[in-house]
Simulated assay, not measured.
Amino acid sequence: MKTFSAKKNTIKKKWYCIDAQNKILGRLATTISIYLRGKHKPEYTKHIDTGDYVIVVNAKKILLTGKKNINKKYYHHTGYIGGIKQISFKDMLITNPERIIYLAVKGMLPKNSLGREMLKKLKIFSDHQHIHFAQNPHDLYIT
């Protein structure tokens, strides 16, 4: 019996749509990363991009548990000396809610070129409307 290895040209990619309204950020991000990597498929191969496309709508209605919505901070560095910047979760939710889900999912994907390719298949929208109707996405319900 031989070990099955998926080929790049034989993989069928589907589109899924997830509504993030009243969903917990971490649980949502794990589900998204599983679908982006392709771990939900029986033909999953770790060195091939077997994942599907994921559309996330209502990103501005994401939730956190506990006091994280007050205490959580996002950091980045400008590249200059003393250039560390921080923004709180509440401010990020107002200014750029798509980035919250993007950063959570990015941390759960591989840190290499394959992970960067997987992250390109993630489409995030802050409202309930998206532009990918032509791809006929399947609704994905998360509890």
Results as ranks from 00 to 15, higher is better:
Asp19Val: 06
Leu103His: 02
Gly26Ser: 07
Asn22Gln: 10
Pro97Gly: 06
Pro137Asn: 08
Lys72Cys: 10
Ile18Val: 15
Ala104Ile: 08
Ser126Ala: 15
Lys73Arg: 10
Ile32Thr: 07
His76Trp: 15
Lys121Gln: 14
Lys23Tyr: 00
Leu36Ala: 10
Lys2Cys: 02
Ala59Asn: 11
Leu64Trp: 03
Ala59Trp: 02
Asn69Met: 05
Ile84Gly: 05
Asn71Met: 03
Val56Leu: 02
Glu98Leu: 01
Pro137His: 10
Lys13Pro: 03
Phe133Cys: 06
Gly107Asp: 11
Lys13Ala: 12
Leu64Phe: 09
Leu63Trp: 00
Lys39Arg: 13
Thr10Phe: 04
Arg27Thr: 11
Val105His: 09
Lys46Trp: 04
Lys13Tyr: 04
Ile11Asp: 09
Tyr80Phe: 05
Gln86Arg: 04
Ile87Asn: 04
Lys12Phe: 05
Met1Asn: 11
Asp127Gly: 14
Thr65Trp: 00
Val57Asn: 13
Lys123Ala: 11
Gln129Ile: 06
Pro97Phe: 05
Glu98Asp: 15
Lys106Gly: 02
Lys90Asp: 14
Ala134Thr: 12
Asn112Asp: 14
Asn22Lys: 07
Tyr16Arg: 03
Leu63Glu: 14
Gly79Arg: 06
Ser126Pro: 04
Leu119Gln: 14
Lys2Gly: 07
Ile18Arg: 07
Gln86Ser: 15
Ile87Val: 14
Thr65Ser: 13
Leu103Val: 03
Lys13Cys: 05
Lys41Phe: 09
Ala104Arg: 01
Ile100Tyr: 06
Met92Phe: 03
Thr95Asn: 12
His77Gly: 08
Ile124Phe: 02
Gln129Met: 11
Lys8Asp: 14
Gln129Val: 13
Thr50Glu: 06
His130Met: 06
Trp15Thr: 12
Ile62Gly: 13
Lys90Asn: 13
Ser33Val: 09
His77Met: 04
Ile48Trp: 03
